[in-house]
Amino acid sequence: MKISVYWGCLTLTSEYACELSTRKVLSELGIELEELSEYTCCGHPMKSINLTAALYLAARSMALAEKNKTEILISPCSKCYETFKWAEDLLKKDESLKKKIDNILKEENLSYNGEISIIHMIDLLYDYVGVEKLKEKIKFEFEGLKVAAHPGCYAFRIDGKTGLKRISKFDALIEVLGANSIYYAGKLDCCGGNLRPSRPEAALTLAGEKLNSAIEFGAGCLVDFCPHCHEMLDYRQEEASATIGKKLKIPVIYYMQLLGISFGIKPEELGIQLNKSGVEELIKKLNVF
């Protein structure tokens, strides 16, 4: 299966573990990734500055993906996924907007025709690959591991019923690894990632409260998908702790990294060394290798 991949600004410039683990695990599953010829921002930050800019940036990347002649475009970043779906919908509905954007795309010899399907990573793993196929590849199970699942706002607050189903799909994807996706009060809460540009302290408070909730309910680790969430909860875990004045220590790991570990892939190949929140100790505890 060959699909186009859009990495997203954060993954390309600092959240390298996301790219490493996604590349490794998808290749293990026989999914060939085709890059876009250029990478520019998906446009999400521009939604707060200039709507045309946001739309144009999204349409540009989708147009580049269409050049690849693959049916599907994925992004490991939920925010980028949401922006593409938003742009796809708006350009379908508003003819005059589409004309405006088409004119600008023409300047770059690009065209967006609404042909490419944009799929979320959770749907890719659950619907396209399927739990059965994952089971075949799993070598190690994490019995007794209590996982606080963090699907992230942009995974399930869009796409109506289909979006909501992603919460239970994510739980299923965790349970297929033998772990237990526990209930915790903050499960559906926002990590604060989008608030950082305008209100950094409040954003860290949100991240801290999320981590606190997971710890309160006895989670052994927190699993996320989107690099923006991961940056708040893993990379900025110490800052978040300091902001809410509580000692928070909980391993935060990308789902793709956890999946890769269960496949038996070496931690360095999944970027485990890049997690700041003590994931290496977690892996040692799991006695996998």
């Binding site: 250029e38 520019t40 045309t52 770059e108």
Partner: peptide, 29 residues
């Protein structure tokens, strides 16, 4: 960094991108 981790170099946009962005800010939505 990307090199140390064996990740490919980031493919940046062509020069046409700048012109397009200037066009965008000329358009008022």
């Amino acid at each position: 960094d990307r090199v140390k981790l064996g990740l490919p170099k980031i493919k940046g946009p062509k020069e046409t991108f700048m012109n397009a962005m200037f066009m965008v800010f000329g358009e008022v939505l």
